[in-house]
Design a protein around this nucleic acid. Sequence first.
DNA 1: TTCCAGGAGAGAG
DNA 2: CTCTCTCATGGA
Length: 301
Amino acid sequence: MTQIQNVTDFSLKYTLESGQSFRWERIDNAYYGVVEGRILKLLQEGTTLHVESSTDENEADFVPFLHHYLDIVRDVPHILIGVRNDAYMHRATKKLWGMRILNQELWETIASFILSQNNNVRRIRGIIRRLSERFGERLTLGAYVDYSFPSPDALSRAAESALFACGTGYRASYLSDTAQAIVSGELSLTSLQQMSYTEAKQELMRRKGIGEKVADCICLFSLGHLAALPIDVWVKRIFETLYLRRRATHREIREFAYNYFGESVGYAQQYLFHYVHECPNWADAEHLSLIEMKSAGLTQF
DNA sequence: TTCCAGGAGAGAG
DNA sequence: CTCTCTCATGGA
């Protein structure tokens, strides 16, 4: 059992339940998930994080690993104040205060968001769970059983029909192709991690099944590029409804969002994305009226 | 039954 | 460049 003390401006719930990872399961107030080959059990009590692992961890490495994965080291309050330009964002950041963008393992993030296209979160989770059960390694933490995310090698050797049987649908060939490209060295994960946002995005988009949105998800949720802006149906809807007040192309949304929120637009996007999922009345008249109101001068937290 | 989901590829204009 | 059609799946 590991404890991390003085974790401030952090919400485990919103971080793990905001659609950036498909691997976490809440049981009571604890979260179970698999991260880089081990089961983790995470429980937040105020500013203390209780952690259990299925592996014998070296404390000196484990705590920094957790800090990085959960993005605890980042000055998120500074980012949020910087993107809190209006009363709407003020409300969103207040409700979800402490939500952070994870730094997830690169291959799992690539594979997961290839599978996410034209799909819903519930089904994506099911596909990833079945792929892990079928091609990953069995792990246990007490009575809890889960499976590691299968390696590129394991998925590259799997028959596409076997991937298909896990429910991947037409995405099976995309997943297989990219796994094979990584095994062959045609696509280098370590190179991707050294590239700028623009370079990494461009390199990712060369793969079949990775378009602009999926590439941006990988850049944001694994590579730490906060300028990445994944535009899915919801983000498009949010910007068209709240800010632009008209039908807009992806290019127009991207230009507006970057000008309005700045270099940490990815963080702003995540708060908006999750806020509208938490608030069914996100687009009612009272909410819309908040957009013109500046955040400055509103009550602090 | 049709529509939708953290879309992308292919083709047409 | 933009628009449209299709892709496999399951829940609403």
